[in-house]
Amino acid sequence: MYDDRTIWRHLDGELPEGEARAFEDALAKDPALARRIAELREVSAAVRGGVPKPPPDFAAKVAARAMAGPIAPVLPLDEARRFLQRVVVAAAILAAAGVAYLVVKILPSVLDAPLWAGPDNILGK
C-alpha cells in the first residue's frame, strides 16, 4: 500500500530506480492505485492550468525600458502613493527641524542684539 507522498515522488520522477520499478509493477496489478494516481494527476493538471501568457511585445517593452536609462523601480499605484507620502512626511520633518534650529540657536541672538548691531554681532562672532 503506497501513501500519497510516495505516489507524488513517483509522479515527480523522484523515486530511486529500484523503488520506481517496484512501484510500476504494483501499479500494473492494482486498479485502485491507478485511480489514486489519476486523482492526483487531476490536481496537478489544475495547478498547471490558467497561466497568463506574456503580451507579444513584452520583450521589446522591457528592452526599451532598459535602454531608456536609469531604471526607476516599477511601483504599483498604492505603493507609489505610500512612497510619496513618506517623502512628504520626511520633508516636513526636515523643515520643522530647520525651523526649530533657527528658533533655538539664532533667534535669541537676534532678539538680544542691539538694534545697530551688524550681522557679526547678531551671530555672536
Binding site: 497568463p52 503580451p55 517593452k61 522591457v62 525600458r65 532598459a66 523601480p73 504599483p76
Partner: peptide, 18 residues
C-alpha cells in the same frame, strides 16, 4: 492575480539588467 503578473515580471527582468 493575472492582472499583476506583467508588472512583477517586468521588474524581474529589469533587475536582471541592473
Amino acid at each position: 492575480d493575472a492582472h499583476e503578473v506583467e508588472d512583477v515580471a517586468q521588474e524581474v527582468f529589469l533587475k536582471v539588467f541592473t
